[in-house]
Design a protein around this nucleic acid. Structure first.
Lengths: 227, 227
DNA sequence: TATAATCAAATTGTCGACAATAGCTATTGA
DNA sequence: TCAATAGCTATTGTCGACAATTTGATTATA
């Protein structure tokens, strides 16, 4: 998937760009333990470059809050905690609510058809695999990506997909069991698409906000049960 | 004002951090023309450092979209256009609406009092200076900062204050005459504070969204008139 | 004259070395 | 035995030099 807003021409990709993407992926997937501290020399060797480009990559990852920096001490891989996850859900509720609203107003007919096709595919797959979490999660992201892109608001897309979603995915990879119930989420997806198809911006926004809000409440509920 | 999320200990500030802040300030204030291209060597000399730290600073500014980078070509100061400004207002509407909602729920009594004091000071100053745009703009930002901080949502504050607001300020400095009418905006501010004081999250959110939305519409209206 | 290929200059990308700082260890004193 | 200090080690911060690439200018050719 394209990482909006940065040049990714395969040909003229610079070493700093490559290590940025590779390191980001390693962090998001959990190949490097959250909260751990790794030296620049070690990282540079691991990614086959020198400390110069590596430090440039670290600065960008710092901006995305995937690493935390302390001057003269070093960088630490971002730690994951539930409080921050909850905060991110409020951000998603606001931003994706707006995205759904704008998508209802600005999506092209083709984009709506493509979105419905995606949902039909999900329905097929769900019918077969009942409650498989992984597909649902990736499929869920796919669905949300489409809505965001459908807003036709570049700043909004860049913010959500280019910066926020990496942190979301990091939590998904490493806090495995927190997804909303697949069938419930799927039904909510369907209603959102209906509202978009009806070009009802306010309703689409409301449905999207409730969709994300209920996911957040689901996490908060589990959090109380297990503590 | 603090630039949330990054170490700013005056003592151990690194050269890369200093040039980052200085260069960001120069860009936001328009000391360097938007859309212009400046070489790394020239920038490094201007800020009294070498290209290493400068490039780290540029990477962070790239993440904030204050500069645009083309591999092997160089960086260009972000260009300003009305389409992007409008997009940013939709972001503000969504995010600051959420901030107002959360502020109504989570602001401490002291914070509410302090916010009311700020507004009283604005009223005084407005009574004296009628329609002075500059103070109003800075005062306006002050007001919005307080609400955002009052949300007590770290991720939201970091996103708005730490990343988005620099672009907003850049537009304010350089697209001078686009502010909402001061007295109308002030009245809206008062209503928002009333809703926060009444702990009415939904209403505070609605008022904030209308406040920002009408500012956006005001810009769009002027845009049509002059074109 | 227009177009394409070639070359040169300037700029960016990368690297290794050195300087500066923080944190740890050992030593000294009470 | 504990605390404080001094020194050492490892890591980060900074710099200058070199390599790679782009861009434009120039020249040759149709």
């Amino acid at each position: 998937m394209s990482d909006l807003g940065f040049a990714t021409d395969a040909a003229s990709r610079t070493s700093a760009d490559r290590v940025f993407e590779a390191l980001q992926d390693a962090i998001v997937r959990g190949d490097i333990a959250p909260g751990s501290r790794i030296g620049e020399t070690e990282l540079a060797e691991r990614f086959g470059t020198s400390r110069g480009p590596l430090r440039e990559a670290l600065r960008r990852l710092e901006s995305r809050r995937l690493v935390e920096r302390t001057p003269h001490v070093g960088v630490r891989i971002a730690a994951l905690d539930y409080a921050t996850l909850i905060e991110l859900y409020y951000l998603r509720e606001a931003l994706e609510g707006m995205a759904a609203h704008l998508a209802a107003l600005h999506m092209t007919a083709d984009e709506v058809i493509s979105l419905k096709t995606l949902l039909a595919a999900h329905e097929q797959d769900e019918a077969l695999q009942a409650d498989t979490a992984y597909f649902q999660q990736e499929g869920d992201l796919d669905f949300h990506y489409r809505i965001i892109q459908g807003s036709h608001n570049g700043a909004l897309s860049q913010l959500l997909i280019g910066e926020l979603y990496h942190r979301i995915r990091m939590y998904r990879y490493q806090f495995s069991a927190y997804a909303n119930r697949p069938q419930k989420a799927f039904a909510e997806h369907q209603r959102i698409v209906e509202a978009i198809e009806a070009r009802d911006g306010d309703f689409a926004e409301m449905l999207m906000r409730r969709h994300i809000s209920s996911a957040r409440q689901n996490i908060e509920r589990r959090l109380k049960e297990t503590s």
